[in-house]
Design a binder for these strands. Structure first.
Length: 507
RNA sequence: CGGGGCGUAGCGCAGUUGGUAGCGCGCGUGUUUUGGGAACAUGAGGUCGCAGGUUCGAAUCCUGUCGCCCCGACCA
């Protein structure tokens, strides 16, 4: 089955440049870096071992942080009774249009005997929904778990797949099925729930994005129109892509008492009164991989921050006959030393591929560092070590390779963040006139982040979106410059504004 | 759902007065190679998306149908 025939692949090697076609650059990179592939079902993706190893690394770090902040993992079912969705009106409104529905439990031969059809005899009495998110099934369960204030708070997370029948999909950025974690907590007070939502935003998501993914993010609160269906308010982190758009990398919602009321979850307080609980939910998904690619990668392929890279160092032994045996032995020895220090290494001792082929191969796949081990190097006692995010190769004495690599991996992690931060800085604009604002978002492509004043009304927000395709990504919680938090006048209407908000074209 | 494009080998494509399918890459084998995507030789691989129809004969013409990609509406 041919799925991406519009992708005009120039050859089986290489990818388009970001400059020539950013969208194709991304699409081809994802596939050629072995991060994901198309599947026979539209919008679903196959994640091969290399891509999954990356996800596992992300998962592991996030899972540790989630547990560190007091949460436990649990698992709830994939299938949810349709009736559960009838209970929270806004939530239904938000998800009804994109639900996959299970209606039968058996297949049978069609009349002509040539194919299988759902057996009319086996239609379910109540259709089941493949979870688009798990609030409803979880709140139905929490009703059983919560009787007393002594049962609170409940701090639970689950790693799962969910399905949303998206009309237009893109590998990692928007797939019909995706992997994620979803946290669901219950609390006695509004303030405690808000503190929870903010803990996740600051201590987990923002920290993970910046310290592990090396992607700087804006933390903020969503406007009413961008708030999660069924939430009281939503917090988010927003990153900038290399084509100057915004990408929502994570969300943390304060659900108020909406779900508690919809699912009748009350507890008896210390004073003996019945009270509805307050709730949060929060999630990050495989979209983070798309964010990672868009933040750091280049025209040679994937660039991955060392903390998350499936392979951090690859050794390429060179030479022929005894020479090759010798270089391979040296490579394996150094690799073992690095592995002992917890570094993820690979020795590419494939016989048929040339060193040049191997260099390109691993560059495409985002290996952070490469060590060339050749006869010349061994004679000189220096090996060629290159970093994925730098052009030049360093000559390093064999004995100091392990220390050098260890130091450079740490340096690369920091440098990627610094570079991404500088890029974002260079593409943030503080704009106070409508003409300049409109001009900034004119034409195709993104316009970076525009920090501008907004009068706080949904009408103005919508109007600006219609005129420029830029939307309010968030109302920042912490400002880059103190003056961004000062009052001003709306860039469109001139009405009073409390602070600047982040405008951008979004993924 | 609207507009556009397209279904031929694993991938990218060619193939019209209708005559039973080809190229490049990749893949197997062998030899020579290997310092930034090696070369030659040899071989394997396709009921031309599916279903009808026209015809002596259909990848090609007709009808229907399914699917995919891009742009839009919707969305993490």
């Amino acid at each position: 089955m041919r799925i991406c025939q519009n992708l005009k692949v120039s050859s089986n090697l290489g990818i388009p440049t970001r400059e020539s076609n950013y969208a194709d650059w991304y699409n081809e990179l994802v596939v050629k870096a072995d991060l994901a592939d198309y599947s026979p079902v539209r919008g679903c993706m196959i994640i091969p071992p290399h891509g999954f190893a990356l996800w596992e690394n992300m998962q592991r770090a996030l899972d540790d942080m989630i547990k560190e902040t007091g949460h436990q993992n649990a698992y709830f079912p994939l299938l949810i009774p349709k009736s559960f969705f009838d209970k929270e009106a806004d939530h239904v409104e938000g998800f009804a249009k994109e639900c996959a529905v299970v209606t039968h439990h058996r297949l049978t031969k069609s009349a002509d005997g040539k194919s299988l059809i759902p057996d009319p005899e086996a239609e379910l009495e109540e259709p089941l929904i493949i979870r688009p998110t798990s609030e409803t099934i979880i709140w139905n369960t929490y009703k059983k778990w919560i009787q007393s204030y002594r049962d609170l708070p409940i701090l639970v997370n689950q790693w799962a797949n969910v399905m949303r029948w998206e009309l237009r999909t893109r590998l990692f950025l928007r797939t019909a099925e995706f992997l994620w974690q979803e946290g669901h907590t219950a609390h006695t007070t509004y303030e405690e729930a808000d503190a929870e939502a903010l803990t996740i935003l600051h201590d987990v998501y923002s920290k993970f994005a910046e310290e592990w993914m090396a992607v700087p993010v804006f933390r903020g609160i969503k406007t009413k129109s961008e708030t999660f269906a069924g939430a009281s308010h939503s917090y988010c982190i927003e990153a900038m892509t290399q084509d100057l758009r915004a990408i929502q990398a994570g969300t943390s919602h304060h659900l108020g008492q909406n779900f508690a009321k919809a699912f009748d979850v009350q507890y008896q307080s210390a004073e003996g009164k019945l009270e509805y609980v307050y709730a949060t939910s929060w999630g990050v998904s495989t979209r983070l991989i798309g964010t990672l690619i868009m933040a750091h990668s280049d025209d040679k392929g994937f660039v991955c921050p060392p903390k998350l890279a499936p392979i951090q160092v690859v050794f390429v032994p060179m030479g022929k006959a005894e020479g090759l045996e010798q270089t391979t032995a040296v490579a394996k020895d150094l690799a073992a030393q690095l592995k002992a220090k917890g570094i993820r290494v690979k020795v590419d001792d494939r016989a048929k591929e040339s060193p040049g082929f191997k260099a390109k191969h691993w560059e495409m796949r985002g290996v952070c560092m490469r060590v060339d081990v050749g006869g010349r190097e061994l004679e000189a006692g220096e090996l060629g070590v290159s970093r994925r995010d730098e052009d030049e190769k360093q000559m390093v004495t064999t004995g100091s390779v392990v220390d050098h690599v260890t130091a450079q991996l740490a340096a690369m992690q920091g440098d990627l963040f610094t570079k991404a931060l500088a890029f974002r800085e260079a593409n943030i604009h503080r704009i106070d006139t409508w003409d300049a604002f409109a001009k900034q978002f004119d034409g195709e492509g993104g316009g970076g982040f525009v920090l501008a004043h907004w009068d706080g009304t949904a009408e103005t927000e919508e109007k600006i979106r219609e005129l420029t395709k830029a939307s309010i990504r968030c109302i920042p919680l912490n400002h880059e410059k103190p003056e961004d938090g000062q009052p001003g006048k709306c860039v469109l209407t001139g009405a009073p504004s409390q602070q600047r908000v982040v405008f951008a074209k979004a993924y």
